[in-house]
Amino acid sequence: MARKALFPGGNRTTADRLRLSPGLLSGSHVFVTGMTGSNPDGTMPASPEDQFRQAFDKIGAVLREAGLGFDSIVEMTSYHIGLRAHFDSFCAVRAGYVTDPFPAWTAVEVAGLRREGALVEIRVVASTEPG
């Protein structure tokens, strides 16, 4: 089975340094690496909602590289620092990106994330097959 790495905008700097693909097309699925809400310049927004939107926007960029949209997501796992403190805000932001039929979703409270100041990291699996 052929696999294809997905690099939105062709930017490979961080991906090459960390030896990962932001997304990987394998068969009829796209696997998107966990995305935090950092800005393009690497800074972390102070607002939880801004972090959540930025993380979803980065996921969207990977999906677009595969010719897909948010409606192609079949599974989502989100890892949270302070899950209970910002769950309602996260759900409100998430509602602006996912559509019916909604993807399977697991939200997990964690002790830490790789990026300093990150409140969430989101990974998704999307299908290339028509819904």
Rank of each mutant, 00 (worst) to 15 (best):
T33K: 13
P22M: 02
F56C: 09
F87S: 07
G82M: 01
R53D: 06
K4Y: 01
V93I: 15
I59K: 02
M44N: 10
T33L: 14
F90N: 01
R12K: 13
T128G: 09
T128C: 10
R84N: 06
D16P: 00
G82V: 14
F31R: 04
E129K: 12
T33F: 15
D41H: 05
T43H: 01
G60N: 03
L25M: 13
G42D: 07
V98C: 02
S26T: 04
T128F: 04
Q51P: 07
G27L: 06
S21F: 07
G117V: 03
M76Y: 02
P101L: 10
T14G: 02
E49W: 04
H80I: 05
R17L: 10
N39H: 10
R84K: 15
V125I: 12
L24H: 11
R64T: 13
A92Q: 15
I73N: 01
L119V: 10
L63I: 08
Y79F: 13
D88K: 13
A92K: 15
S47H: 02
F87P: 05
A61T: 05
T106K: 11
T77D: 12
F70A: 08
M35W: 06
N11D: 12
L63V: 14
A5Y: 02
G131R: 12
D71Q: 08
P22K: 00
V62R: 05
E49V: 11
T106P: 04
G34A: 11
F87M: 09
R64V: 14
F70M: 15
L20N: 08
D16I: 02
A2F: 09
V62I: 10
R115M: 12
G34D: 03
T36W: 06
T106G: 00
S28D: 12
D57Q: 14
A126I: 15
H80A: 09
V98H: 11
L119Q: 01
D16V: 03
R53A: 12
Q54I: 12
T99Q: 09
E116R: 09
G82K: 03
V93A: 00
G42R: 06
S28N: 12
L20E: 15
T77P: 07
E129D: 04
R17T: 13
R17D: 05
S47Q: 14
D50E: 15
E49P: 05
T128S: 07
L83S: 05
G60S: 12
A107W: 06
D88R: 15
A66M: 10
P8Y: 03
R114W: 10
S89L: 14
N39Y: 15
S72P: 00
L119G: 04
F70T: 10
L83N: 06
L63G: 00
G23E: 00
